[in-house]
Design a protein around this nucleic acid. Structure first.
Lengths: 200, 200
DNA sequence: AATTTCGGATGACAAATGTCATTCTCGGTT
DNA sequence: AACCGAGAATGACATTTGTCATCCGAAATT
């Protein structure tokens, strides 16, 4: 199978590409250091499969996966990421990726996952799916929006202007968020949400 | 040369080990998934060189490097990390590491760095050293202590109790920090300090 | 149809944050 | 010896945060 590797970390990109190329049934036809390069290569080289990091410059791996789906491109995506975050996972599933692996896993799992996906299967750890199901986000979508703005350091007044609400309303949302996350202040809330994958 | 690879990400640890083993003059004699394992292996296997990540469970790579130096062990350390953070770099230099590479670099740089270090040299990118020299931390050591407590979500009152100072003093320190970092609030200050490697 | 629940929205008030002026001590400079 | 600058320390005051009570509308339940 023809494969490209999209990973901004040079060490990992090079190492994975070299190792996968040693496998008889795998040919690494391209390596991308950012999402834009990945998309270009997918369009021009038409690989069967792409190993895709998430957090990359220019376009994220999820941006690319969504683009592939929207344009009905015949390239299967296997996400390979450091972050076991619920938000990333959900977005990846919606984008129709065929695999979702963490970089924590042993290297052997990668080629096994590629073969599984090539044969029409999916390669997603059941433990991951369960972990994300359990860590369900307790916040409403409006509260999640507010939390993102909190994490960007905006004051209640600034958020009020941006969302066309009053400062009192924003402060009430903030208070609700603190109570739901059992956080004692905004900094604590940010840390808890990031740890649980509710901020991305 | 006999080498161990200490890296908590299974994919990278496996891939690097496999590739380095392919080199004629390099033998990977052990792989560690955390700092404690790394230290145990260094003590029992006595490798010539260790490739060491920084952020690992149990003991950090820097903890291990400091231990090696304190106990005069004949194992040279090459740090391999994602984070180009000033604090990590300075601590690594103090611990006497022989190399400091970022995972961004091409895979070829790794084996070149290992050979350089084996021959008694050091493998540290001049660009890195310059970047850290330029991004000098503007905070006094007391302010850095306060910033760490801010990042942990403590209130001024809590910090006051912990440091045996008054709440007014703490608030003044916080204000000084915000002015020096040109931050508009604590959340902003945390983000700026993390970006510049002044929080670790 | 009536009632209940939940999310969205707001402001009063207490608590915390951030700014500013002030004082003190110590080390460096003249 | 005298002076200056920087860091450490503090409290008054203005601003912002966080809590709480309240109201409204829509959807779900009875």
């Amino acid at each position: 199978m023809r494969v490209i590797v999209a990973e901004d970390q040079g060490m990992l990109r090079g190492a994975l590409s070299a190792l996968l190329d040693l496998e008889e049934d795998i040919e690494v036809v391209g390596q991308a250091a950012n999402g834009e390069q990945a998309l270009d290569m997918i369009q021009s080289l038409k690989p069967d499969l792409c190993i895709m990091d998430i957090e990359m410059p220019k376009l994220t791996g999820l941006d690319v996966a969504e683009n592939i789906k929207q344009n009905n491109m015949a390239c299967r995506v296997v996400i390979l990421t450091t972050f076991s975050r619920s938000g990333y996972f959900q977005r990846a599933m919606k984008a129709g990726v065929h695999g979702y692996l963490l970089k924590d896993a042993p290297i052997q799992e990668l080629s096994e996952a590629l073969r599984k996906v090539e044969q029409g299967g999916r390669a997603i750890s059941p433990e991951l799916a369960l972990q994300f199901w359990e860590a369900e986000n307790p916040l409403t979508s409006k509260e999640q929006d507010i939390l993102k703005l909190i994490a960007q350091g905006l004051s209640a007044g600034e958020m009020a202007k941006q969302l066309f609400l009053s400062s009192g309303t924003i402060r009430n949302y903030v208070s609700e968020i603190l109570q739901k996350l059992e956080a004692k202040n905004r900094i604590d809330a940010i840390a808890i949400a990031e740890k649980n994958g509710w901020l991305s």
